[in-house]
Design a protein around this nucleic acid. Structure first.
Lengths: 111, 111
DNA sequence: CAAGTATATGCGTTTATGCTCATATAACGT
DNA sequence: ACGTTATATGAGCATAAACGCATATACTTG
């Protein structure tokens, strides 16, 4: 498998689409709420403070992107993180932002 | 520094904003074109096939997000990747997508 | 079969963002 | 100073997506 070959136009659109899915605070809240494991929708609605309709939509989006997986059990539907790269991705971005913010604080209060 | 503490609402918005910057094919094309090093705008316009105006705007966006850095030299402006996590981020996403696509191909042509 | 609970979805509105065209700014050469 | 090249930006249009409201579907229980 090559490592740095340039991506095709189609591949770029896929990558962009994936980033777009992660570009919504509510979806990040949902992902974060699922870091500790599976949860049902009502639970996620409470955890995120969103409306049921909105949470349901975002869960759809995340599932369609193969980031979450669904498991139905009776009346309830349980969601979980199904893509193991997601936590790493979030860590990377958080780390990068921390550095960036630290730099900015440095600018505000220079030695 | 804690590793998995839940992010504040502000932090979530920052993370989302960062993902949003990466959620445009043209911007990914620009980033990709800069993997091998610094380039000026005209060069990037040719490499990506976009209009000058549009490329300039996207370069602005990427620079404002501290993903790229600018260096002016005479008439030309050279851009380069300034955030070292960007290549890793792209690798992660690409790897995840490859797996996902491989699975889908498997579904189309099952054993 | 009726009622209740959990989840999903159609629709309309609002907001954000990308794109193009035209023009502005900046730096260089003559 | 003037023209030319490289880059940036203002305005307007078009599209996409998030949200809320209402309602539909799916399953369970009596």
């Amino acid at each position: 498998m090559a490592k740095h070959r340039p991506l095709s136009e189609d591949a770029l659109q896929l990558v962009a689409a994936r980033f777009a899915v992660l570009a919504e605070p509510m979806r990040l809240r949902l992902i974060q709420a699922l870091f500790d494991g599976e949860r049902n929708v009502t639970d996620l609605v409470e955890a995120t403070g969103g409306t049921q309709a909105n949470v349901s939509r975002h869960l759809q989006t995340l599932t369609a992107a193969h980031i979450l997986a669904r498991r139905k059990e009776g009346l309830q539907v349980f969601y979980r993180i199904s893509d193991p790269t997601i936590p790493k991705l979030c860590e990377l971005v958080c780390g990068s932002l921390e550095k960036s913010l630290t730099r900015q604080i440095g600018h505000l209060a220079p030695g």
